[in-house]
């Protein structure tokens, strides 16, 4: 294996990505895990480009960092909704007080110029795109590998991860999320398409029949949901116990 900066070592060809997105079986068997990592990082950065630019504008306009700018916006919307509906919100969700707090913090100013502080925070959020995609690919993939094994599939980890990385290609559509209405629709299509590519890739590399490959790919969803519920329940029980003591 060559370890140099040639892009071909780090990326599959655009034709290969296109073939995989179109569910052509040969594409799933021709790439390496190294190319998979490169592709996921690149696609996630491309998908996150439009949100990055818009986020930078939002933060610079508010004169603060992105999370505070988003909090100001979200709390204003929440205040508007609760005001219109006439809800009595609980004390820990006093939207008016929260809005005031975020606005006060946003107005405080910071050592860096507004555009730079906003830009840095938007850049951080942008870098989070590939990190989140890598998390999904590795962590979800590890559970699917176990399910594959249980259902009789046989594949090496490298081949499995290389093939399933192509599920990132349709996720490019999630980058359109800031566009009203169309963005949500594109996001939903992207996620659904990605799941189909994932199942197809899983079937190709494990040699499992399609229904079994689909079951292995979908099985982690309820397991992860259950684990989150269990962890949440334990945490609540533990904090309740600590407070009681």
């Amino acid at each position: 294996m060559r370890w140099h900066m040639n892009w071909r070592v780090w990326l599959p060809s655009p034709q290969q990505i296109s073939n995989a997105a179109q569910l052509r079986r040969a594409a799933y068997l021709q790439s390496t895990m190294q190319q998979a990592i490169g592709m996921i990082v690149l696609l996630a950065l491309v998908a996150g480009l439009l949100p990055f630019i818009l986020n930078w504008f939002l933060a610079a306009q508010t004169g603060t960092v992105l999370p505070i700018a988003q909090a100001v916006q979200a709390s204003a919307e929440a205040q508007d909704v609760t005001g219109r509906l006439g809800f009595n919100t609980p004390w820990f969700f006093n939207s008016a007080a929260l809005h005031d707090l975020y606005q006060t913090i946003a107005g405080m100013g910071q050592p860096l110029p507004d555009w730079l502080a906003g830009g840095l925070s938007a850049l951080g959020e942008w870098i989070n795109w590939p990190l989140q995609w890598l998390s999904l690919w590795i962590v979800y993939g590890a559970v699917v590998m176990v399910a594959n094994k249980g259902l009789g599939g046989n594949v090496t980890m490298q081949r499995f991860y290389a093939a399933t990385s192509y599920a990132a290609a349709p996720l490019l559509l999630t980058g359109l999320s800031p566009i009203p209405c169309l963005g949500t629709l594109a996001g939903l299509v992207g996620v659904g398409w990605s799941l189909v590519v994932y199942i197809r890739a899983n079937a190709e590399v494990t040699g499992l029949p399609l229904p079994r490959a689909a079951a292995a790919a979908l099985l982690p969803l309820p397991i992860i949901g259950l684990a989150i519920l269990l962890a949440g329940g334990l945490l609540v029980a533990l904090s309740g116990l600590i407070i009681a003591l």
Partner: peptide
């Protein structure tokens, strides 16, 4: 880079 968060799970 500020505001980058890497998942512990990953």
């Amino acid at each position: 880079i500020p505001f980058v968060s890497v998942s512990g799970l990953l």
